[in-house]
């Protein structure tokens, strides 16, 4: 009995440092944010403690916030779709390649060695009026005046895809790598074409990886504010930009808290739905 009790305690003892850290560095700060969301900002920028529903009423009823939230979810969805479209063939190729997998995976990880902000800003040198692409097109005589390629929604999506693609590829790769290749051969031996065996066997079996990558890409895309700030135009703001603006520009921490909790709630709901259908185990597998 004593041994059973000891064994039952062991996981908790091992988890204790991590749980303590998460409690103090994540749960407690989030609770502070929850409390803050019920306060008010005074005219000079200081906070007025209390229990006011003003910020929540504004966030929920004002169509401005709703529209920006929908726009954010739309951009995140488009980004996720493009990441899946570009990431699947790449992941499949790496998983099925012979001999050079380690090198290909290292190449995939290479972008992480450079700061995300620098990677995002690099597009200015590529797509700018005097950037690499325009210079090339001008020198080839394809265009006479530089094209205005930057600072629109398309460049925001491009920057996000650039940032998030490795997350998608890694998750799909883990999933495809775990599929027994002989299953495809078996399908072919029973009369299916390569394409049919992929559609009927490989794709369904790799869906959990695709979903895990999709979830990661979506959540990270929906929470970004640097990319629209650097590559977006005047009307390409995302929801995280509203949080930044409320807290930094307007010094309205209570409203910023309410806004950030809305974003957490929406993305949390998405994670909940994912967990309901696929389970979090696949996500952890993809991250490992």
């Amino acid at each position: 009995m004593a041994r059973e009790t000891r064994e039952a305690r062991q996981p908790w003892l091992l988890l204790a440092p991590a749980l303590t850290t998460i409690f103090f560095l994540l749960v407690v700060p989030v609770l502070f944010v929850v409390v803050y969301s019920f306060w008010l900002r005074t005219a000079n920028g200081s906070d007025q403690p209390g229990f006011y529903m003003t910020n929540w009423a504004e966030v929920v009823t004002d169509p401005f916030y709703r529209d920006i939230l929908f726009n954010t979810l739309k951009i995140a969805a488009v980004t996720t779709f493009l990441c899946a479209l570009l990431g699947y063939p790449t992941a499949y190729f790496i998983a099925r390649s012979r001999g050079n997998k380690a090198m290909l995976l290292m190449l995939l990880m290479l972008p992480f060695w450079i700061s995300y902000i620098i990677r995002t800003m690099s597009w200015i040198n590529i797509l700018g009026v005097s950037g690499a692409l325009n210079s090339l097109l001008l020198s080839l005589g394809v265009i006479e005046t530089p094209l205005q390629l930057l600072y629109n929604e398309a460049t925001v999506v491009l920057g996000l895809v650039h940032f998030l693609l490795p997350f998608m590829v890694l998750n799909i790769y883990v999933s495809v790598e775990g599929i027994d290749e002989t299953l495809e051969d078996a399908a072919c031996s029973l009369g299916s074409t390569r394409w049919q065996s992929f559609l009927e066997v490989t794709l369904p079996l790799s869906l959990p990886g695709l979903a895990a990558g999709g979830l990661l890409c979506f959540v990270l895309a929906a929470g970004t504010y640097i990319t629209p700030l650097v590559l977006g135009g005047p009307t390409d703001a995302m929801f995280a930009n509203l949080v930044f603006e409320a807290i930094i520009t307007q010094l309205d921490w209570p409203l910023g808290s309410a806004l950030s909790l809305v974003l957490v709630a929406v993305l949390g709901a998405l994670v909940f739905i994912y967990n309901r259908f696929f389970g979090m185990a696949q996500l952890m597998k993809g991250l490992s």
Partner: peptide, 12 residues
């Protein structure tokens, strides 16, 4: 307070 907020909206 009022103007920075209003500008934030127009900006977007």
């Amino acid at each position: 307070q009022a103007w920075s907020k209003e500008f934030g909206r127009i900006q977007k």
